[in-house]
């Protein structure tokens, strides 16, 4: 073993040099496994989307992309790991509207700034949010629900998936718009939330179309108020918020990829190209569609657009949070 280490040490500078030369020429990139950091637990919507992209991109890059789930602090732990990793193209990461926009206002101790600390590869998936309520709730439309909420106030019990989660933010936005303060019941993740909606213990929640598709299609919950211009192609029977008389309720959750800041330009270009090609893949589009989302529209695609959208969303959620009197420190 001593011998093994001696040789290892003697070889180290040589190997390092080879690596460096390899990095200098973008043609050689990628020459080993790429790690994709997903800042949430495996199996969730962020994870699944990341894996689908990782699979599609690895075919184009000719290298395996391994997903590393670094969950914690509402996505901040993994995103910090992504920010601090070596900008050599061998670590990329997944971020979304929560971790890379709203968190700036919901987490005062956020250890990174999404506006300056990352090089973006582009948004890869967008999915509108909507409201769902238990099957026997006395309202079938957004108008009726709004009226019920105004009449009952604290009597309305809305569940969400944790402080600062996308479902929480969406609910806060909606109830700000209709000026009602319901009772919030907090759950640890969507699995628990949907359980208590199905059992009727709580009235409803706000979440991504992607999360609730199966339950809406199966008829175990009622849905309305898709927060987008058009109805979701996955749930064509569910009316939009505009149809429900609340056009200001517009939330499209996006999810994108990043590389650490200062990733060399040729490598960044190669990664962005792989993202663009993967998004044009019919199989990827179908997978995202089945999940209730879609690839970005042309005005959302690309790394530069992603940064623009992030900057706009940081401002937007800051206003919502400020108006709500602060969503206390999520961490």
């Amino acid at each position: 073993m001593a011998l093994f280490f001696a040789t290892g040490r003697a070889l180290a500078p040589l190997v390092a040099m080879v690596c460096f030369v390899g990095l200098a020429s973008a043609q050689a990139y990628p020459e080993r496994i790429i790690t994709m950091i997903v800042p949430f637990a495996a199996g969730g919507a962020t994870d699944v989307t990341g894996r689908i992209m990782g699979d599609a991109m690895s075919k184009r890059l000719g290298q395996t992309i391994v997903v590393e789930n670094v969950a914690g602090a509402g996505g901040a732990t993994g995103s910090l790991r992504g920010k601090n990793s070596k900008p050599d193209g061998y670590t990329i990461g997944v971020g979304h509207m929560g971790t890379h926009a709203a968190a700036v206002s919901t987490n005062p101790k956020l250890p990174y700034d999404p506006r300056t600390d990352f090089d973006y590869l582009g948004i890869v998936n967008v999915t509108p949010n909507l409201l769902i309520v238990r099957k026997d709730f006395p309202a079938d439309t957004l108008q009726a629900f709004t009226a019920y909420a105004k009449a009952n106030g604290k009597g309305l019990k809305m569940a969400h998936n944790g402080l600062g989660s996308l479902s929480h933010l969406t609910c806060v936005l909606y109830f700000q718009l209709i000026e009602v303060d319901p009772t919030y019941v907090v759950y640890r993740g969507f699995g628990q939330t949907i359980n208590d909606i199905l059992s009727g213990a709580v009235d409803g929640t706000c979440d991504l179309v992607a999360s609730v598709t199966g339950h809406v299609k199966g008829g175990s919950v009622k849905a309305f108020g898709v927060a987008d211009e058009a109805r979701s192609p996955v749930l064509p029977d569910v009316p939009t918020a505009t149809e429900g008389g609340l056009p200001a309720f517009k939330v499209e959750s996006w999810l994108g990829l990043y590389a650490p800041k200062a990733t060399p330009a040729p490598i960044l270009a190669r990664l962005r190209q792989a993202v663009a090609e993967s998004l044009a893949d019919a199989d990827v589009q179908k997978r995202f569609f089945d999940l209730g989302g879609s690839v970005p529209k042309p005005h959302q695609a690309g790394g530069d657009k992603m940064l623009e959208i992030i900057k706009a969303d940081v401002v937007r959620w800051a206003e919502v949070v400020k108006k709500a009197g602060g969503i206390e420190a999520t961490n």
Partner: peptide
């Protein structure tokens, strides 16, 4: 098992 645990990062890079 393909666990993402670093093997010898200062030489191999992973």
């Amino acid at each position: 098992l393909r666990l993402p645990i670093p093997l010898l990062p200062f030489i191999l890079g992973y």
